[in-house]
Design a binder for these strands. Structure first.
Lengths: 196, 196
DNA sequence: CCAAAAACATACTACTTAGTATGTTTTTGG
DNA sequence: CCAAAAACATACTAAGTAGTATGTTTTTGG
C-alpha cells in the first residue's frame, strides 16, 4: 500500500497542474491520464469520478499548501502589518509556483465550480475561511499588542485585504504582467499604515 | 433587416444570461437555441461560431452596460470619493441584474477565457481598461479640485479599489450572501477617507 | 408582383466526453 | 509459496459537443 498512494498522488498533482492552467471543465480525464501515463482503469480505481478527484485536489493538495504558504507566514510573531504585507509580496512577486497568467488556483476554482457544485463550494469555503481566520487572529493580536488601532474592525480589514488579493490576481491574468501587482502592493502598504 | 437584428440580440441576451449563471464552457449551443427557441440554422446564420458569439456578448452587450452602470456614475460631477463609494455600493447592493451568487460577469469571463483565448483577453482587457481610465480621471480631477491629496497615486488607488471589487465578488460567490459586501464597503469607505 | 437574397429550419456528422465492463498483473498476509 | 485482494490495463458505450449540408420560408427592392 505504498506504490498505490504514489500513483494517487501523481494523478492529483498532474491533474492540478492541468486544471490550474486550463481550468477544471476543460481538463478532461483523458488529458489527465495522458500526462500522468496512468490508465483509465487506474484512475477510476483511485477516484469514483472526476468530481471526487477535484475535491481531493482541494482537500489533499491545496489545504496543506495553504497552511504552509498562506497561513504559516502569518504566525511568525513578527509585526502583524509587516507580516501581512510581506506575505502578499511573497505570494504575488516571489512564489514560483503561482503564475501571473494563471491567477490564484482557489479563486479559479471558486469562479468555475461554486455556482453549480455545492461540494466544491463547501470545500473552497473551508479553505478560504482558514486563511481569513488566521489573518483576523493576527490583526486582533496586533490590537492587543498596541501596534494596530483598537477601532480597527479585524474581520472587515481582513476581507478588504483578501478581496484585493483575489482581485489583483484577476487583473494579472488579464494583463499578464506583474506590473499590476506592484501597484496593488504599494497601495496596500499605504492602507496598512493607516491601521497603525 | 429589423427582425433579423432582433433575433441576433435575443440570442446574445439569452446566451449571456446562461453564461453568467453556468459559465461559458458549460453553456452549449444546444442550451442557447433551446432557451431562445431559435434553431441552429438561425444561430449559425448570425454567428460563424461560438467564440464569435462570445466576443459579441462582450462588445455588443457588456461594453454599453459598462458605460451606463459603471462609468456614467463616475462622471456626474459629484465629489469623487463619494462617487466611487456610491458606485460600489450601488453595484454590490442594489443592482438587480448582478447576483451575488454569480459574481461579476466580466470577472467570470476573465477567469474562464483569458488563459487560452487571446481574442477574449483583448476584448475583456479593453472593457476593463475603460473602467480603470474613468476612475483614474475622476481621482485626478479630485486632486486638481483639492478634495484628494496631491500625493495620491491615481492609478495605484484605482487598481486597489477595483481589485477589491473583483475580489469581494468572488467572496460573494463563495458565501452566497451580501454580508461580505457590507464588510468590504465599510472598509472601502474608511480607505477612501484616507485619500482626502 | 416577383425574383433574388436574406433569414431561418432540419437532419446529419465527426469528435470528445465521463464513465463502465471485463479483463490481467502485482502486491500482500498467512 | 500461494490464494485473495489490491492495483492496474484495455476496449468499449452512451451521451453530449460544435459545426455543416442542404433544405424551406420570409423579406426586400425594383
Amino acid at each position: 500500500m505504498k506504490k498505490a498512494e504514489a500513483t494517487r498522488l501523481t494523478i492529483l498533482e498532474k491533474a492540478f497542474e492541468l486544471i490550474y492552467v486550463k481550468g477544471y471543465q476543460t481538463t478532461s480525464i483523458d488529458d489527465i491520464i495522458a500526462t500522468t501515463k496512468v490508465t483509465k482503469g487506474a484512475f477510476y480505481y483511485h477516484f469514483k469520478n472526476k468530481d471526487e478527484m477535484g475535491l481531493s485536489i482541494i482537500n489533499d493538495l491545496l489545504k496543506p499548501t495553504l497552511a504552509d504558504s498562506f497561513i504559516g507566514p502569518l504566525q511568525t510573531g513578527a509585526d502583524p502589518l509587516t507580516a501581512i504585507y510581506d506575505l502578499m509580496y511573497n505570494l504575488l512577486m516571489e512564489n514560483e509556483f503561482l503564475k501571473v497568467e494563471h491567477g490564484c488556483p482557489a479563486a479559479n476554482l471558486t469562479h468555475e465550480m461554486t455556482s453549480w457544485n455545492a461540494d466544491f463550494n463547501k470545500a473552497l469555503n473551508e479553505l478560504t475561511q482558514q486563511w481569513i481566520d488566521a489573518m483576523i487572529d493576527l490583526i486582533e493580536r496586533g490590537k492587543t499588542d498596541g501596534v494596530i488601532r483598537k477601532d480597527v474592525n479585524a474581520r472587515q480589514a481582513t476581507m478588504f485585504v483578501m478581496s484585493g488579493y483575489w482581485g489583483i490576481r484577476n487583473f494579472g491574468k488579464l494583463e499578464r504582467s506583474k506590473e499590476v501587482y506592484l501597484s496593488y502592493l504599494n497601495e496596500l502598504k499605504k492602507y496598512l499604515e493607516t491601521l497603525r
